[in-house]
Design a binder for these strands. Structure first.
Ligand code: MN
Ligand code: MN
Ligand code: ZN
Ligand code: ZN
Lengths: 155, 155
DNA sequence: GCCGTTATTGCAACTCATTGCAGCAAGACC
DNA sequence: GGTCTTGCTGCAATGAGTTGCAATAACGGC
């Protein structure tokens, strides 16, 4: 039940290291290429845990290499998402938000009043998922779900 | 359980007419002004039922008056939303989608496979709303909810 | 190490939306 | 109808993201 913090750099755990280390091979298995631009983004991502906007990632890549091109970053993010390495959702304003190596699938809750954000745990999400599954046979992508409203404090 | 169609012009029902007719007064009660630009957008909206993107509305205003300025339209939409005359959500890509005179509060469901969309009725939404209300005292804005996933046919 | 295939990049143009600001004009008051 | 106040508009710049296309460069094969 913890508020979602801003993206925090953090030391990698060993399994995270493994995850990042395997990206190169996961790409090449699919006939995709391991380019300097992709290396750069993966380096930035491996220093990130939690939630970041696409624009943030572009900026962080630029800090490392000012010649970074936004479209390349966004396209690489698409590729990494296909590999399941990141997932994206949208903030209350529709802007992209990436989850980096999420510990568990989760959605997001945003308060319009104070701007605070929380994760919707798989547990809480289960009720949403189950409802739509039962009623319509619809498979909800929980990690893309953002729910906006007012938190207890702001009501 | 009907798929959400594209925005369809339709004759106004009498209570809708009343709703649009009262906009001018609702604005002026609040010290706001009834300008030609607002008249134009309201005229377009009154010919619309269901769901439209912000960009669509800009374009339709432009058809009537090519000198229409996008920022004015978006700002007017904000005002109308404060009056409760329209409500917006976001499509799967984060773009704005307006509900015009919705019969009832509802959310949206989008299939990534076929692109079809459905409304989440207040009824179905109740389970989502109740869960977050009970667990966190969070008041969900159902009309801003968009859930993405795969529909029965696409699985 | 060179070559060819083709995935990827850089770039420019474009879409959708938001914002600051100076000038304009609704509409209340007389 | 004239005047004043202040809410709105037009405009230009900006931010976030996407797309088409020609040139580039991974990397598998030799
Ligand atoms: Mn929104
Ligand atoms: Mn999305
Ligand atoms: Zn709050
Ligand atoms: Zn479908």
């Amino acid at each position: 039940m913890q508020p979602v913090g801003s993206p925090t750099p953090s030391e990698s755990r060993s399994d995270d290291l493994a995850a990042w280390g395997s990206v190169r091979d996961r790409l090449r298995e699919r006939g995709l290429r391991w380019t300097p631009q992709r290396r750069a983004l993966v380096a930035v991502l491996s220093q990130t845990r939690g939630h970041v906007t696409g624009a943030d990632l572009v900026e962080r890549c630029r800090e490392q290499d000012p010649s970074t091109i936004p479209s390349t970053v966004y396209r690489t993010l698409d590729v990494l998402e296909e590999l399941g390495i990141v997932r994206h959702g949208h903030g209350p304003d529709g802007r992209e938000e990436y989850h980096v190596l999420p510990d568990a699938e989760h959605g997001h809750l945003h308060c319009r009043g104070c701007g605070a954000a929380w994760e919707i745990t798989a547990d809480e999400g289960a009720s949403i998922v189950a409802t739509l599954e039962a009623a319509r046979g619809f498979a909800v992508d929980l990690s893309h779900v953002t729910i906006v409203g007012r938190c207890r404090a702001c009501r």
